[in-house]
């Protein structure tokens, strides 16, 4: 009883008193903004890089594009996101009036782009060669075959992985605090520093991340189910 009571009191202090839930909400909003813009940017970059990689494979004249795309994915995937975040923040966005949320979104977008590129490339390449050949044999051009035959099938492989990438991204943005962005994690730390109870706000933040991830996982499952109509026997 005492334990439950003190837990309740700790929660009240960490969440209710002085409208502290607003701090979490504000942090959550920042986390959501960074994640959404980052995934959009990541998909745009990833799409371009994936198409660059796939077409460079089939065409020797595009070798330079292939090399550039490979350097990008290798460097981004081979270095920690926290270091990338600090480098981009200090190196590129040195001007005083930069919006940290924009910096965060751009940085995580660039980071995510490398992973998305690999997801899209693998998705395109997972479609059987014979599908392209069948399309071409009917008289479709390369691009028509891509658009009508390859991409619709690749999307089924790409979308679940892309959803997982979004989930990973949301969790990764918790390091955004290092560039003075008040995201959900940072907000929890602030609350902790005010109430001198560091653990409870962090549990609240963790629970919030968990709930978001579970909701997204659910949505993803539903989406996959709808897309696999032609897979049914």
């Amino acid at each position: 009883m005492i334990a439950a009571g003190s837990w309740g009191a700790a929660f009240t202090r960490a969440f209710i008193t002085d409208h502290r839930y607003l701090a979490y909400l504000g942090g959550l909003k920042t986390t959501a903004l960074i994640s959404v813009f980052a995934i959009i940017l990541g998909i745009l970059i990833g799409l371009v890089v994936a198409v660059g990689k796939v077409s460079a494979k089939g065409n020797r004249k595009l070798w330079l594009i292939g090399v550039i795309c490979n350097i990008y994915t290798t460097v981004i995937r081979g270095t920690p996101v926290m270091v990338q975040l600090l480098i981009i923040y200090n190196l590129i966005f040195t001007s005083r009036n930069t919006n940290e949320i924009v910096v965060g979104a751009v940085c995580f977008g660039i980071n995510s782009g490398a992973y998305v590129a690999e997801i899209i490339r693998a998705g395109l390449e997972s479609v059987d060669r014979g599908q392209m050949e069948a399309g071409r044999s009917l008289g479709f051009s390369y691009l028509q075959s891509m658009r009508l035959i390859i991409v619709p099938q690749a999307v089924k492989n790409i979308l679940p992985a892309l959803g997982n990438e979004l989930i990973t991204l949301i969790k990764e943005t918790s390091v955004a605090g290092v560039i003075a962005v008040t995201d959900l994690t940072k907000a929890a730390q602030y609350v902790g520093s005010v109430t001198f109870d560091i653990l409870t706000p962090l549990f609240i933040a963790a629970l919030t991340y968990l709930v978001i991830v579970l909701i997204l996982t659910r949505l993803l499952k539903a989406l996959e189910g709808r897309m696999s109509r032609s897979d049914r026997y």
């Binding site: 059987d128 014979g130 599908q131 035959i149 619709p152 089924k156 032609s230």
Partner: peptide, 10 residues
């Protein structure tokens, strides 16, 4: 084709 190569999504 040997492997038919029908479009599975259609």
């Amino acid at each position: 084709f040997q492997q038919f190569n029908l479009f599975p999504h259609k």
